[in-house]
Amino acid sequence: MSFSNIRREDASRAVIVHAILLTYTLVALYPIFLVVINAFKTRKGIFRDPMGLPNAETFSLDGFTKVLAKSNFELFFYNSFTVTIVTIVIVLLFAAMAAWALSEYKFPGGTALGLYLAIGIMVPIRLGSVSILNLVVDLGLVNTLTALVLVYVAQGLPLAIFILTEFMHQIPKDLKEAARCDGVGEFKIFFAIILPLIRPAVATVAVFTMIPIWNDLWFPLILAPGDGKQTITLGVQQFIGQYVTDWNAVLASLSLAIIPILILYLIFSRQLIRGLTSGAVK
């Protein structure tokens, strides 16, 4: 085979590879794209030319005006944001503390405790919902964001502890030993030396904790379905149930729910993959 033959073969193979990848990218993105562009059209535009971009004639923000007037989207966003941020902060702190104790100190039952904390990676917390609802009723926390935060912290901890424990094993021994020789206390070693060191793993853990919480329907539906405590996912679900025939409003509400998470994803996607490929998750 001559050199030019090989190159021609390489080129044709590259064309096929890119054709496959482009096709699948289109399959993945076009449905989302379609919803977002139609949210910016008049009702006529949505039905006459669903695949066209909004133009001077079909452009309209009617849907968004309606959604913002008839539903409490700002509040739902605020609720989702609060629940997600508070949960992530608590999960990161408590998981890091537990991971540190599990990876650093030798104590009786340490391995067993590690396994106990790992059960939650495989067993879905939803299966305990009947009892969780009783608990939340007893604590007087129905229709509060606190109830959601407590459940989501419990849900997020197992995987976070697992990932952070793996990560902490990689911290060089000398660092801690040096600190101990200088007489630094155990708490200070953790908060002043270890916590800043785990920053690379934090992004991975944060994304893995955040996505399921932000997107969850089940617990908002069961624990906080009303009283202005709906999260964005539940809010959209309730809104669409009510305005199902109003296409402008439905498309606009979907776009409002899609756009922020896509922006966040585009910002964090690099960290997410880096965390995965660095062997944090096996």
Binding site: F94, I119, I125, S131, I132, A154, L157, P158
Partner: peptide, 11 residues
């Protein structure tokens, strides 16, 4: 504690 109260105990 949080994991036991809100996950293992309910299960």
């Amino acid at each position: 504690i949080i994991y036991t109260v809100f996950m293992i105990y309910p299960l």
